[in-house]
Design a protein around this nucleic acid. Structure first.
Lengths: 212, 212
DNA sequence: GAGAGATACGAACGAACGTTCGTACGTGCC
DNA sequence: GGCACGTACGAACGTTCGTTCGTATCTCTC
C-alpha cells in the first residue's frame, strides 16, 4: 500500500511547489485533524485545484506520510547538530529539550499533526515513520541514561524519558492559547529544570540544569 | 447548537442502555478518532441499528459531549473523594496523580477520547466541557501551589502543573503497548517522584513523595 | 382489549468525500 | 512548425457519511 509518487522527469519548481503543498496540508490537518480535512480544503489552502494535488502526491495518505517523516527526520537532524560540542550531560539534555521546543515553535502545525495523528497511518507508511520516531526517542533516551553514569536514578530511565516527552509534546495543547508570557526558550528551561530537579529542588545544583 | 436529548418519559432501562451506547462510542472513538468513527460502526459495536442510536442521543456530537463531560466530572469527583483526610501536601499531590492514572487505567477509552478530541466540540458543548476541565485543572493546580506555602518554587506553578498534566495525559500514547511491566500505581508513583524531586534527586526527601 | 407512547429498525435521503478522467495549456527539443 | 510531456483544472464517478422517515413491536394505563 501507499505507492510513493515518482520523482523523475520533474519541472524545476516541482520540489518547491510540493513543499508548499505539504505546508498547506499540515496547516489544515493541525486545524481539523486528518480525517476532518478534505482534499478540497487543502487544495484551496494551497491555491490549487483538488485534482492538481495529485500531480505532487499519490493521495491524502502520502501527504500525512511526508509531513510526519520530514518532521521527525529534521527533529533528529537538528538534535545531532545542536549537540555537537556539548559535553556536560545535563547541558546535553537541556540542549535536546531546547531543540525540540524550538522546533515546535517554528513548525507548530507539523508537530501538532505528528503528535495527534501518530496512529493514523498504517502498513509500510506507519512502519517507516515509526522507525524514524523510534530513533529520535532512543537518542533522547540515551541522553537521559548518560545523566547518571555511576548507576542510575531510582527511576526507570525509559519511563522517565517517556514522561519527558509527555511534557514537551503535550504543551501544544496549552501553549499560545493567547497567553504567551513565556518564551519558548524559557519554557524549555523550565521543563529541563523540572525534569532534572523536580518542582522542589534546591537551586544549588550547578547551573540548575538550564541556562542560555 | 447541540440540542440535548430530553430525559423525560423514559423506560426504566433507558439510562443503562444509553450508558452502554456511550461506552461503545468511546471504544470506537478511541480506536479510529471522532471523525473516523461512523455511526454505523458505533451502532454495530453497541448491537443497535444505526437509526436506533437516535432514540438515546440527538446526534454524533452529543455522544462525544457526554463522554467528555462525564469523564471530567468523574475525574473531579474522584479527586475530591480520594483527597479527603489526606493533609500532607506531597501526599495530596501523590493522591491526585494516582487518582488520575488509575482512572486512565479503568477508563482508557474515555480518557483517550478526552485527550485526543479536546478541540473537536464547538460552541456551547465545547464551553461546558471546557469549564469542567478547567475546574479539574485548577484543583490540581491548587495542590501544586500548596506544595511550598512559604513562597514557592523557582518554577511557575501554572506551567509546572501543565507539564504535570503532560506527563500523566501523554502516557496513553505509550502505556500498554504490550510491555506492561509496570503497574498503574507504580507509574503514578514514578511520575509523582519525577515531578516532586526530578530525575536526579536524593532519596532523602521524606517518603520520596510516592508511597502506598 | 383498545389506545398511547416509548423503542426499534430497514430503507432511503442529500451531502460530502477521495479520486479519476478527459482535456486543455505551457514549455523545451528536433 | 510539430511533437512529447509535465502541469493544471472542471466535471464527474462511486462510495460513504450523518440523519430522517415510515412503520412495526413492545409495554404500560384505563
Amino acid at each position: 500500500m501507499l505507492k510513493l509518487s515518482t520523482t523523475q522527469n520533474r519541472t524545476p519548481g516541482f520540489d518547491g511547489k510540493r513543499l508548499h503543498l505539504l505546508e498547506s496540508a499540515a496547516r489544515v490537518f493541525s486545524q481539523v485533524g486528518y480525517d476532518g480535512a478534505s482534499m478540497r480544503r487543502i487544495a484551496a489552502e494551497a491555491q490549487v485545484s483538488p485534482a492538481g494535488i495529485y500531480n505532487y502526491v499519490t493521495g491524502k495518505e502520502e501527504l500525512l506520510y511526508w509531513i510526519q517523516y520530514h518532521t521527525f527526520d529534521s527533529l533528529l537532524k537538528g538534535l545531532e547538530h545542536s549537540l555537537s560540542g556539548v559535553v556536560d550531560p545535563q547541558e546535553r539534555l537541556a540542549t535536546a529539550v531546547r531543540n525540540h521546543v524550538r522546533h515546535f515553535g517554528e513548525n507548530m502545525h507539523e508537530l501538532k499533526v505528528c503528535a495527534r495523528e501518530l496512529e493514523t497511518l498504517e502498513g509500510e507508511a506507519y512502519d517507516a515513520v515509526h522507525e524514524c520516531r523510534r530513533t529520535y526517542f532512543e537518542a533522547v533516551h540515551q541522553l537521559v541514561k548518560e545523566l547518571e553514569p555511576t548507576g542510575g536514578s531510582r527511576l526507570d530511565s525509559w519511563i522517565a524519558t517517556a514522561n519527558l516527552f509527555g511534557m514537551i509534546n503535550w504543551f501544544y495543547q496549552w501553549y499560545d492559547a493567547g497567553r504567551t508570557q513565556v518564551s519558548l526558550d524559557d519554557l524549555a528551561a523550565q521543563q529541563t529544570a523540572l525534569f532534572l530537579d523536580g518542582y522542589f529542588a534546591s537551586t544549588s545544583n550547578g547551573d540548575d540544569g538550564a541556562d542560555k
